[in-house]
Amino acid sequence: MDVRGKRLTLDEFMNTELSVKHYPEMEYNWATGVAITKFLKGLKNGKILGTYCNDCDRTVCPPRMFCEECFNPMNHYVKLPDTGVINTFSLAFIRTDATRREKAEIPAVIDIDGTSISPSGFLHLIDEDVSHDKIKIGMKVKAVWKDEKDRIGDITDIKFFELLEDD
C-alpha cells in the first residue's frame, strides 16, 4: 500500500531530537477489602466463594460486600463448586506486548455453578492443550488447581479450567 509521508525506523523514531522521553515509575498496592480478601483466601484453600443476596434471592461470584442490584449489604458467603459453564471464550494469539503466540491462550468467561445469574463468575483460561474445535459455549468445565503448597491467594491459584464434556 502506498502511504504518504516518510516511514521512520524504530531507531529514528526513538532517537529523533524532536522527542522528549520520560519513563514514569508507577507502583500501586491495592487493598483487596472485605469480599475479595475472603475470595482470595478461599482460592488459597481450594474453594470458590460467592455471596447470597437475601433481598434479590440470588447468589453471585466473585463475592461482594454489597449487591449492585438492590444496593443492600451482602454478608452471606457460600462455598460454590469448582465447576461451571463457558459463557464465552476466544483463542488469543497476541500477547499484551503485541508479540505473537504460536500456541493460542484460551481466555474464557466461566459462569460458576451454583450462582443464579449469568454472567456470574470470572475470566480465566481453558486448558490450552485441548483441541480447539472441541471448545463450545455452554460447555461444562472444572477448575484445575495448583498444588496446595504453591497457592498464594490469587486468581492464578486455579491453573486453568478443563473441559468436562467429551463429544
Binding site: 491495592w30 487493598a31 472485605v34 460486600m65
Partner: peptide, 12 residues
C-alpha cells in the same frame, strides 16, 4: 489509610 476496605467498599 483505610486498608480493610477496597476502594469500592469504601465508597459504598
Amino acid at each position: 489509610s483505610i486498608r480493610e476496605l477496597s476502594y469500592k467498599e469504601m465508597v459504598y
